[in-house]
């Protein structure tokens, strides 16, 4: 039986510490948020989109933009909760300094997950801005996508934090990328509709959180209709809570010993 996390408001000090560092490197940070996903959007959307044509009512670029908003949140949040959090935990002694103050592991894990979710949200917002400027967003309902993106970022970060809890070095994260993140990205409905896959594969990959995030976020951006929003939300929230609870328990065991 693992003890549930009991974080306090001091989690916000962890979040704020990371924000303070981010602000110091504002320009490269923002460039990073816009840069790569934007290139994907342009290259695939226009290069590839010509070959694909439209998907039902939807142009391929609009389809792709809503997908890349999800994958950008996924990768930004995961990166932050793995590479950056690991640096603060293992190399920079940042977490040890926090543990000498009245913070506990539960605060640190929640603060880091919230921060990684925030970065995921920022990267998604950057793309949303570009997509809006390109006329790829249907209507004001798109704003509803933002809390869902934030929630998904939380979930992706919490899951990545579980990996960080086990990591002994940076190479370890490649397992997660190769075995989980990349397959989830390719089968999650980001680049093309999941219906292209055989049914057994659709079913198998539907247990992962990304397709549920995409199913929620895409219709909100492109003016489509939500099919099973409660199931989608339940899966995303479930992964988020399970990730946070396990990561907290594992990192407690690692640091409080």
């Amino acid at each position: 039986m693992i003890a549930l996390p009991r974080p306090s408001f001091r989690s916000l000090a962890v979040w704020q510490r990371n924000l303070r560092v981010w602000r110091k490197m504002l320009l490269p940070s923002i460039l990073g948020h816009f840069g790569e996903p934007l290139l994907y959007l342009l290259a695939f959307g226009y290069g590839f989109g010509r070959l694909v044509g439209d998907l039902g009512q939807l142009s391929y670029v609009a389809f792709l933009a809503s997908g890349i908003i999800c994958s950008s949140a996924l990768f930004t949040a995961s990166f932050e909760a793995m590479y950056s959090a690991f640096t603060r935990m293992a190399n920079q002694q940042t977490w040890n300094a926090m543990l000498n103050a009245p913070l506990v592991v539960d605060d640190i894990v929640l603060g880091e997950v919230l921060w990684a979710a925030t970065k995921g949200l920022m990267s998604a917002m950057a793309i949303l801005l570009v997509a809006t400027a390109m006329g790829l967003v249907a209507d004001w309902r798109a704003l509803w996508a933002l809390p869902v993106v934030a929630l998904s970022g939380f979930t992706f970060a919490a899951c990545a934090m579980v990996v960080t809890a086990f990591a002994r070095n940076y190479d370890f994260f490649l397992y997660y990328f190769t075995l989980i993140l990349t397959p989830m990205l390719l089968t999650g409905g980001v680049f093309f509709p999941r219906e292209q896959f055989p049914e057994w594969l659709q079913g198998l990959t539907y247990v992962l959180p990304l397709p549920h995030a995409v199913d929620l976020i895409r219709p909100l951006l492109t003016g489509g209709s939500l099919h099973q929003p409660w199931l989608n939300l339940a899966v995303v929230v479930g992964y988020g809570l399970a990730g946070l609870i396990s990561a907290t328990a594992l990192i407690r065991r690692r640091m409080i010993c």
């Binding site: 510490r17 303070r20 560092v21 110091k24 920079q92 002694q93 940042t94 040890n96 300094a97 000498n100």
Partner: peptide, 13 residues
């Protein structure tokens, strides 16, 4: 107040 054995100053600041 804690003065740890190993430097835990925040190098980002």
């Amino acid at each position: 107040g804690v003065v740890p054995q190993f430097d835990s100053l925040d190098p980002d600041f």
